[in-house]
């Protein structure tokens, strides 16, 4: 397709998704289990009417922090999905590839079994997530072979080991309520969102995004593989390492605050590539806005219709599969068009 057409389309979709993001962000503040009439909503925000204290408290203390968290987790997970897929040149790869989510789950499960507070659950999850990826990289070094396949393979090995540890912890937790807590955490929730957590999340995600936007051209070349990147003047090992570190941090920081959320890291990059091709300077901005919007929608769905919250992975799974099937149908049509030519 014509480069100018893709550029135009990218700009259109980017603008549209920014508008959608703003609309859903406000909807995220308006909708929920507690009914707030539209005029009450605006009064609660723009006046200090004491009769709306409860409404104001719900908007400011419950919905605002979790909507912000949803937005940034959405950005983080879809970006890291995109980066992993591009770096490993495999479109079925998700952010969990190098074991970061399973590692984080083990960390969280340990903290839950020890009966630690939710802040410690997050810290344990974050550190174990990073540690797991570190171990994965170390194991791949044992092979003295820098290829991505070896890294993928050791990711599978370490991921499998971590799942086994997780099963063991679940088994040893014994107590049915502890087990339920672990399972619930694994399915993801924004329930623990508050502003101080949001500040940490926002800080990390924004720094990662700034760095990523600066290195979009090297990212493109890294996607071409070592031989191409290196002979075109890009330090392949350095940039691949940097990309893996950034996407791992993005996943770990998201997972540690809200548990594991599946599908988003797989689906959003696919949609984005359909629109903008494989140029990181276009796919990264689109991933940011699409991921944030998708996650806010998921959060609204997860907390509005039932008296307790539906786990995020259940919603992303349902929504994600439907979207994925639609993508496949569109792609099939495209493939058939090519055949006709």
């Amino acid at each position: 397709m014509n480069d100018k057409k893709i550029k135009k389309r990218t700009i259109i979709f980017l603008t549209a998704s920014i508008v959608a993001l703003l609309i859903f962000f406000i909807l995220g503040l308006m909708l929920g289990r507690f009914n707030i009439a539209i005029d009450d909503f605006f009064k609660a925000i723009f006046t200090s009417d004491a009769s709306l204290d409860t409404q104001r408290s719900i908007i400011v203390n419950l919905r605002l922090p979790r909507t912000i968290m949803a937005a940034f987790v959405g950005m983080g997970l879809s970006l890291s999905g995109l980066l992993y897929q591009e770096t490993f040149r495999n479109k079925l790869v998700s952010p969990d590839l190098l074991g970061v989510s399973t590692g984080a789950s083990v960390g969280a499960a340990i903290a839950i079994v020890l009966g630690l507070s939710s802040a410690f659950i997050s810290i344990f999850a974050f550190l174990m997530g990073l540690l797991t990826v570190f171990v994965t990289v170390m194991i791949s070094k044992l092979f003295r072979n820098g290829s991505s396949t070896i890294l993928l393979l050791s990711g599978i090995i370490v991921g499998g080991f971590m799942s086994a540890i997780l099963s063991l912890i679940k088994y040893m937790s014994g107590d049915i309520t502890t087990l339920a807590s672990i399972t619930y955490w694994l399915m993801g929730s924004f329930e623990s969102a508050n502003m101080s957590r949001d500040y940490i999340l926002m800080g990390v995600v924004v720094v990662c995004i700034v760095v990523l936007l600066l290195i979009t051209h090297p990212i493109n070349l890294v996607n071409q593989g070592k031989a191409e990147a290196q002979t075109k003047g890009i330090n392949y090992n350095f940039y691949r390492g940097l990309i893996i570190v950034l996407s791992t941090v993005l996943t770990a920081i998201s997972v540690c605050f809200c548990g594991t959320v599946s599908w988003i890291g797989l689906v959003i990059p696919h949609i984005v590539r359909l629109i903008a091709g494989r140029d990181a300077k276009r796919t990264i901005p689109l991933c940011i806005t699409f991921g944030a919007t998708f996650m806010i929608v998921v959060d609204i769905l997860s907390r509005t219709f039932t008296d307790s919250e539906i786990p995020l992975s259940a919603v992303t799974g349902l929504l994600g599969t439907v979207i994925f099937v639609i993508i496949l149908i569109i792609k099939r049509r495209k493939l058939n068009e090519h055949k006709d030519i």
Binding site: L214, H217, N220, G225, A227, K232, G277, R278
Partner: peptide
């Protein structure tokens, strides 16, 4: 055999100009 096949020729050729660009620059 080692070339990715789903980017446009124009984009691929532009990668040849990398040696004149700073790391944050695009063609």
């Amino acid at each position: 055999a080692n070339v990715t096949n789903d980017i446009p020729v124009r984009q691929y050729l532009s990668y040849g100009t990398t040696n004149t660009l700073a790391f944050y620059e695009h063609p």
